[in-house]
Design a protein around this nucleic acid. Structure first.
Lengths: 106, 106
DNA sequence: TCGTCGTGATACCAAATGGTTTTATATTAA
DNA sequence: TTAATATAAAACCATTTGGTATCACGACGA
């Protein structure tokens, strides 16, 4: 019943949202700036941002009439953690990964 | 446009499907065996298995009238690969992970 | 102060999603 | 051969999802 894990997986399931995450990895952006880069309305982008926020993948800061959207990289931790269960199926080089993630997880 | 990445993310977005993946990590199972472990019809489980198969996360082998469903761990590689882009946001221990995955990706 | 700019929120819509029931088909067992 | 088993496939349904258009509102600038 880990809703954090579920919300993060759900947020990453949509290609537009993954693109947003990649864009925010380069620089923080307002909704308007993000909308300029997509062929959809501001309202649609806003909905995606809400899902990303629910998934813990971004944070939003109000600045005047603007809203600054920033990547929250640690929001991906639940996803990586879930995936790390399967490390044993890959080769030994990947075993290090699991330990690294677990060490990073709080 | 990477449909493999999209299909894998989509497949993992549903909690029932993630549970199936975990179950198949322990042992291969027929649809009937999987259905016994869920509170839903065989048809519903079958639909989830189709999505998982589309995502490259399982393989199905016909054996008589049964269908053996097996985990395909490398199906998660596109997901891990996408996520590895964000390694730079975590601490240095995670840098190893990225290299490991990339080495594994052929 | 007054218009405009950036955003939030709501109502609405078509399509996708996760489920069921029903019908059909191939394989196995008696 | 016949009945039971394991699955497939299709029709159907309610809800969710990804999008639009519209309206409301606080913040800024002239």
């Amino acid at each position: 019943m880990n809703t954090q894990t579920q919300n993060a997986f759900r947020a990453l399931a949509d290609p537009t949202r993954r693109d947003i995450v990649l864009m925010l990895a380069s620089e923080e952006m307002t909704i308007g700036q993000l909308t300029d880069r997509f062929d959809m309305t501001r309202a649609a982008v806003k909905k995606h941002l809400t899902v990303l926020s629910d998934g813990g993948l971004i944070t939003v800061e109000a600045r005047g009439r603007e809203r600054i959207n920033r990547l929250e990289p640690m929001g991906m931790a639940p996803v990586l953690d879930w995936l790390s269960y399967f490390d044993r199926f890959w080769d030994d080089r990947l075993a290090n990964l699991k330990k690294a993630i677990e060490g990073n997880q709080k």
